[in-house]
C-alpha cells in the first residue's frame, strides 16, 4: 500500500513537471529563433497572455479546444508581426519596446476578460492521449506517455527547431544575421526578412504557449501566465540559445517546481521553509544552466537593430 502511494507520488511529480515545462518550452523555443537572429523580444509574456485569452474565449464560445489553440496561434502571429515591425522596421530599443508589448498584452487581456467574460468560467481541457504501447509500460508510461497532444507536440518541436536552425538555409541565414548582419546583408541576405520570420515564429509559439496554458488549466484569470514569458526569455539565455538547452531548462524548472510542491504536501519541507522553497526552481535552474552553458556566448548582434545606411 505504501509502495503504491510512493509510486503515485513520484509519477505525479514527474508528469506534473512535464506539464509545467510545456508553456516555457514553447515560448522559449520561439524566443530562441528571434534571439539567434539578433532580436530580443521581451514582450513574450504579453503575447502569451493575449494568446491565452483568445484561446480560452474561443473554447468558451465554441467549445472546440483545437480551434482555441489555433486562434491563440493566430493572435500570437499578429503580435509577432507587430513586434517585428517595432523592432526591425522601426529599429526601436528592444528592451523598452518589449516591455511595452508586455504591458499592452497584460492590460488588454485583462480588459477583454473583464468585458467579455467577467467571472472565471471553466472550459474543456485538452483530452489526454495515451500513446499505444508505450503508455502501458508501468510507471514510465504514466509519467511520459499519457499527456495531451500539445505536450508531445511541444517536445517534437525541439528536434524540429534544431534541424531548422542547424541544417537548413533558413537556419544558416538566421545565424548569419544574428552574428554579423552587415556581412549577411552584403551577400544578399535580407536581414529584415529573416528577422521578421524569426520574430513571427516567436510570436506564434508564444501565442500557442499561452493558449496551451489556458486550455490545459481550463480557466482564464487576470495575469494567468504569472510572468512565465519572462522565465522563458531567461531560459533562452541560460540555455545558451540552443533548443536542447531551453528544453533542459524548462524541464528542470518544471520538475523542481512540482517536486517542491510534493515535498511541501508531504510535510518533508516544513511550512516555515515554504517561501524559501518557492524560490528553489529559479535558483536551481539558473545555477545548473550557468554551469552547463557558460562556454557559449550570445549572438553577436543580439538586441542591436540593423538599419541599412542609405
Amino acid at each position: 500500500m505504501s509502495d503504491l502511494l510512493d509510486q503515485a507520488i513520484v509519477v505525479t511529480a514527474i508528469a506534473g513537471g512535464i506539464r509545467l515545462a510545456v508553456p516555457l518550452l514553447l515560448a522559449g523555443l520561439g524566443e530562441t529563433f528571434g534571439q539567434r537572429s539578433g532580436v530580443l523580444n521581451l514582450g513574450v509574456d504579453g503575447i502569451m497572455l493575449l494568446g491565452a485569452f483568445a484561446g480560452y474565449y474561443t473554447v468558451l464560445q465554441i467549445g472546440n479546444v483545437w480551434l482555441g489553440l489555433a486562434v491563440g496561434l493566430v493572435v500570437g502571429a499578429v503580435l509577432g508581426l507587430a513586434t517585428a515591425f517595432i523592432s526591425v522596421t522601426l529599429g526601436a530599443e528592444q528592451g523598452i519596446s518589449g516591455i511595452g508589448v508586455y504591458l499592452f498584452g497584460l492590460g488588454l487581456s485583462d480588459l477583454l476578460f473583464q468585458k467579455l467574460v467577467g467571472t472565471p468560467r471553466p472550459i474543456d481541457s485538452f483530452p489526454r492521449v495515451p500513446i499505444p504501447g508505450l503508455s502501458s509500460i508501468p510507471v514510465v508510461g504514466e509519467m511520459f506517455f499519457r499527456h495531451s497532444l500539445v505536450v508531445y507536440l511541444a517536445f517534437l518541436l525541439v528536434p524540429a527547431s534544431i534541424f531548422v536552425i542547424n541544417r537548413t538555409t533558413f537556419g544558416m541565414n538566421i545565424r548569419a544575421v544574428g552574428e554579423n548582419p552587415e556581412a549577411a546583408d552584403s551577400v544578399g541576405v535580407s536581414v529584415a526578412r529573416v528577422r521578421y520570420a524569426t520574430v513571427l515564429i516567436g510570436g506564434v509559439l508564444a501565442g500557442m504557449a499561452g493558449a496551451a496554458l489556458a486550455i490545459d488549466l481550463g480557466i482564464f484569470q487576470q495575469n494567468l501566465t504569472n510572468a512565465q514569458g519572462f522565465i522563458a526569455v531567461a531560459l533562452v539565455y541560460f540555455g545558451a540559445w540552443r533548443p536542447l538547452g531551453v528544453m533542459g531548462g524548462a524541464l528542470l524548472y518544471g520538475l523542481v517546481n512540482s517536486v517542491v510542491l510534493q515535498l511541501k504536501t508531504l510535510g518533508i519541507i516544513p511550512r516555515s521553509w515554504s517561501d524559501i522553497a518557492a524560490m528553489a526552481p529559479a535558483v536551481i535552474t539558473i545555477l545548473a544552466l550557468v554551469l552547463v552553458a557558460r562556454r557559449f556566448r550570445q549572438p553577436a548582434a543580439l538586441a542591436k537593430p540593423f538599419l541599412r545606411e542609405a
Partner: peptide
C-alpha cells in the same frame, strides 16, 4: 501546501495534483 504565490494558477493546479497523489 503553500504554493508561494497568490496568482500562479498553474502552480495551484499542480498543488492539487500533488495533494491528490498523496
Amino acid at each position: 501546501n503553500y504554493t508561494g504565490s497568490f496568482s500562479d494558477v498553474g502552480l495551484a493546479a499542480e498543488a492539487a495534483e500533488a495533494q491528490i497523489a498523496a
